[in-house]
Design a protein around this nucleic acid. Structure first.
Lengths: 208, 208
DNA sequence: TTCATTATGTATCGATTGGTATAAAACTAA
DNA sequence: TTAGTTTTATACCAATCGATACATAATGAA
């Protein structure tokens, strides 16, 4: 009956043999995310991580592999959590609404005191000694941009964008502004300022 | 007659006593700049720096102080060198011309094979374990933004911008786009793509 | 109980980090 | 030459890096 367990998610673990772990992996991941977010991949030392996660080193390695694998899991959690607004925005009915929600959602993060400033996918490993980590994060940024591009291509098919509009270039533009907002936020810009930037950026949006 | 030397720059050094240094500090600084630029402040190890600069460690410390002070000198050189176009752009006659030159100058850097991708002031220390370095770089970004703001305020006084235009917000917008372009460039975007982004971004610029 | 299994805590590994002590080398001035 | 000065090169420092060995603690199963 083992195959029944595959793909299933039981609320309470099925009481595996051995000593039970004394921490919640998801909570620990959240804490690790904050460290990577604030200090970047290289700036986050194992000692920073274990202190914030409130576990010791062997527990971290047993549960998450190593530093790189922990960072990858944190990236996964980041995209499902703090930037979940991005995926939701893509489901809005109009292209303009999608872009507005992305811009203003990004701005809103800047005033959330429970999370670090900026964007993990930007400052996590923009320039990083470890090239594989740098490429990993760059690939995730590209993936987000691709998702937006697909959404804008659909909008054009639906007549939601002018015939002369180029979804690829518009997606590049939107993501450029979003990443610029992340840099500005990391430098201390607040939600109000970023909202005003978003208002100006939206003036470039094509009208039907 | 010593005071005559103060403020003077002689082509050839006046033959000071002691063993002459075997390297050109400016060339060494350029090489250090490339390392910091590509790997960030933390990602650039002393061994990386000395190898690229082709000097040994004591020479580096004797000539530049320590890693932080070397980074500061590199930042100075960066602003006078690779991003010198920024200051020149501010001297153009119209606000629109200024912003166009900043945008297209930023885009042009992406295809320059002699320099790393992205912007040293963005990826040098966006998220950095050393808070003083992070703040230093953020302050320099703010300074650039302030200079543009001043330029746009002048433009408004001169009637070069509409009466309802807000130079502060426009400067925020321009710098947000510029920094977003830096992130995109670090992720592999080329000059052509960034130029198209700049074209769209310019559609948001106010018309008289 | 006893065994098997897994997690925890401590202590440590080799490698690398930023930073120096020291002595030889290369110059000027006398 | 000789003394004084500065740079160079080697070797090394303590601290920290990411990652583990090992013994103990805590569970389920027998």
């Amino acid at each position: 009956m083992v195959y029944l367990l595959i793909g299933m998610k039981s609320k309470t673990a099925p009481a595996l043999p051995g000593r039970p772990r004394a921490f919640d992996p998801d909570i620990a991941l959240d804490r690790a995310m904050h460290v990577f977010w604030a200090k970047g991949y290289e700036g986050a030392a194992l000692s920073d991580l274990t202190r914030a996660m409130r576990i010791n080193r062997p527990s971290l390695y047993a549960a998450f592999g190593n530093k790189v694998q922990l960072f990858r899991k944190v990236l996964d959690r980041y995209m499902d959590g703090p930037v979940g607004y991005f995926g939701k925005a893509l489901a809005l009915p109009t292209a303009r609404g999608v872009v507005e929600d992305i811009f203003f959602g990004t701005a809103r993060m800047a005033d959330d005191a429970t999370i670090p400033a900026g964007c993990l996918m930007v400052q996590g490993a923009l320039a990083c000694g470890d090239a594989s980590v740098r490429k990993e994060v760059a690939a995730r940024r590209t993936a987000a941009e691709f998702a937006l591009r697909r959404r804008l291509q659909r909008a054009k098919r639906e007549g939601d964008l002018p015939k002369n509009a180029d979804p690829t270039e518009l997606a590049h533009y939107v993501m450029t502004v979003v990443r610029g907002m992340a840099v500005q936020s990391a430098g201390g810009a607040g939600c109000d300022q970023l909202r005003r930037v978003a208002q100006i950026a939206l003036r470039a949006w094509p009208t039907r």
